[in-house]
Amino acid sequence: MPASALAATDPPVMVPEPADIRHVLGHVPTSVCVVTATTPSGPVGVTVGSFTSVSLDPPLVVFYAGCDSASAQAIVGARSFCVNVLADDQQEVCAAFARRTPDRFATGDWEFEAHGPPRLSGAAAWIVCDVEGSHPAGDHMAVVGRVRDLAAARGPRNPLLFHRGQLARLDRARGVHAPTHSFDWWDR
């Protein structure tokens, strides 16, 4: 049978509505991070809800930001950035960097180094990266970073989460023992 005959019998591809995609994917909790960089014009930063590890060897991470984000474009141009994983009491920092406010760095306690991106004191973790590359991903851009330094907070600093369209905390999960024997594959 010719390929054109097969194509004619395939059902039409249904594309979900953006509101449906947002609703369903909102059930997947994500971390909330502020990605920062130092540029010749000063520090820049943007709140992102799409950040994850990519590879251990080489050590790579990725974050996604809107294609029209001037801050994300400046971060790519700076060639290095810091992912500040917000702690659950840093909601004001999240809001400041999600808006187009003139002095975002007035919110939070920031550490500015001479040759590095700004780091947020009290963050649940921070990861300093060199830009490995960036590429379009629909209405966002994917920015891949090669990890060159990182640290997690000492003591109990839980991350701020985004779930079902709002900021969330891990309060309900604290102190609950979840067996990990089924996740032995993770350590390989």
Rank of each mutant, 00 (worst) to 15 (best):
G49Y: 05
N158S: 11
G145W: 04
G42E: 08
S121A: 15
C82R: 08
G155L: 06
A19L: 09
S121R: 15
A124M: 07
A7Y: 10
G66V: 00
W126Y: 12
G49M: 06
F81G: 04
D171P: 02
I75H: 05
G42V: 07
R119Q: 08
D184N: 14
R154N: 10
A3M: 09
T38E: 15
Q90D: 04
S134A: 15
D130S: 15
D130L: 11
H115F: 13
R22F: 01
A3E: 10
S134Y: 01
V83M: 06
V176R: 13
C67D: 13
D130I: 01
P102Y: 03
H135M: 09
E111N: 08
T38G: 04
R146V: 01
P136E: 14
M1V: 10
G138H: 08
V35Y: 06
A65V: 05
G138L: 07
L120P: 09
S53G: 14
H115A: 14
P159I: 05
G138A: 10
A142V: 03
P2W: 00
S182M: 12
S31H: 07
V131A: 08
E113Y: 05
T9K: 04
G155P: 05
A123W: 02
V46M: 08
A78F: 07
D88I: 02
G26C: 03
M141E: 12
D139Q: 04
D20W: 06
L150T: 05
R164H: 07
R104A: 15
R169F: 01
A168V: 01
L86K: 04
A153Y: 08
P16R: 01
A87H: 02
F183Q: 08
E92F: 03
H135P: 00
D171N: 10
P118K: 02
H115S: 15
A114R: 12
T101E: 14
P16N: 04
F63T: 01
A72S: 11
A87P: 00
S182V: 14
T180D: 06
P117F: 01
P18C: 08
M1S: 12
A153V: 09
M1T: 12
W186N: 03
V62D: 00
L60W: 06
P179K: 02
V143R: 05
D20G: 12
W185Y: 12
R169H: 12
S71M: 08
F112P: 00
D184T: 15
S80C: 13
S31E: 10
P29H: 04
